[in-house]
Design a protein around this nucleic acid. Sequence first.
DNA 1: GCAGTTGTTTAGGAGAGGTTAAATATTTAT
DNA 2: ATAAATATTTAACCTCTCCTAAACAACTGC
Lengths: 233, 233
Amino acid sequence: MKRSGSISQENYLKAIFKLQHEHGIASNQAISEKLTATPAAVTGMLHKLTELDWVEYTAYQGAKLTAKGRQIAISTIRKHRLWEVFLVEKLQFKWDAVHQWAEELEHIGDVDFTNRLDAFLGCPSTDPHGDPIPDSNGDWKGNERVFSADALTRKQKFTVRGVSNSASDFLRHLDALKIQLGKHFEVMDYFPFDGSWEWKDDQGISIRVSREVAGQLLAEAIPTNRGNENQES
Amino acid sequence: MKRSGSISQENYLKAIFKLQHEHGIASNQAISEKLTATPAAVTGMLHKLTELDWVEYTAYQGAKLTAKGRQIAISTIRKHRLWEVFLVEKLQFKWDAVHQWAEELEHIGDVDFTNRLDAFLGCPSTDPHGDPIPDSNGDWKGNERVFSADALTRKQKFTVRGVSNSASDFLRHLDALKIQLGKHFEVMDYFPFDGSWEWKDDQGISIRVSREVAGQLLAEAIPTNRGNENQES
DNA sequence: GCAGTTGTTTAGGAGAGGTTAAATATTTAT
DNA sequence: ATAAATATTTAACCTCTCCTAAACAACTGC
């Protein structure tokens, strides 16, 4: 089996998919920024993708994926995230270094290939940045209890579940703060002056995190143990 | 770090490398056949590769790789063969199904990436077809004792070490004959009438192989145990 | 050694994906 | 409501890699 679209086409579909999630529709300009191409190039490609019936697009109005387009985009995202898991868990890359390679690897492999990779990796549900990996049907369950860490309140215990920004310098900053996915913290204090926080980890070590860090970190609150609430494993 | 050349350029270098091994020089026509492109396309690309100082090429005379060109070709072959090992050993692909994917994967990854993949796979010395995998310096030791299986004589014991043809139907034929790399056989008989052979495996099971099969199978003779010869592990 | 076959190169062009600059919509502000 | 600012599209052109067809070299046979 071959690739659904060209590499460039797959990149457009992926960009439109993400923009649609954020803004309901993908504007020409937003697409051009995500792909670092000129708006003129985007217009041209949108015409092609419309021809292929992968996007619906009205001049000046922006683009939306069709069912087929969404399916291709999700399959590309699935491959991207599975390869990221491979790169971190098997090839020992640091999590800030995997994106560039995954951007290339995501265009390789058909459904069978991807399912084999998935099985080999143990069917992971999230990638190294905490983003969910769609299953082979293109479905995935977002964790509904995950929110931006700056929405937490004092005394709240939480688990780090993801990042909403995968820029290298942000990820390296998290490494320096010893913040990793799955790690538990408790909110100790908040400083309205600069929006910074004090968090304490399992070992009782306190760290200060800036407003910027808290705002881009995704956390899952750990229910406090009164009554019969669901357990966190 | 980025790719040395474009995907197309890497494919040309790889093709020229292999043709140089077989014929000392890569003719325009031979290249065009290996890449299924027209001779005209080859001429154009050879000009570009000459500009880049990756090949030396004189009109009407054929092409040879420069040191730099050979280095890129070998690194591409290294990646190809490592990915093939990955596909067979980790993703459980059958050996006749890996070539198409390895053709795409071979263009991904820099030296560091490739070395990580190599380490993850346990630094294999040959790919699933028995072809040697260059090390990170681009060196490899061909096994000097490996020859085409049709050069063997009666009573000779040998180990299957590789194939000189990786076409899917040939590999599937080998599967049907239960011929695998590393398996031991003994030459029982040869039939000059049609060039076919009778071989017996470890379990005493005899198979008949045609001239075509023997001619494309690479075997390493196992020394008969008289005197003090090197042991086969 | 000259004609014919075969291999190679040049010329012209196509299509995919990009660019810049100019023209045209749309939105925003007054 | 309309001018100014912003966003989008069109037009013309570029690069890369491929193609076909025609011109040109190089071998081969006799």
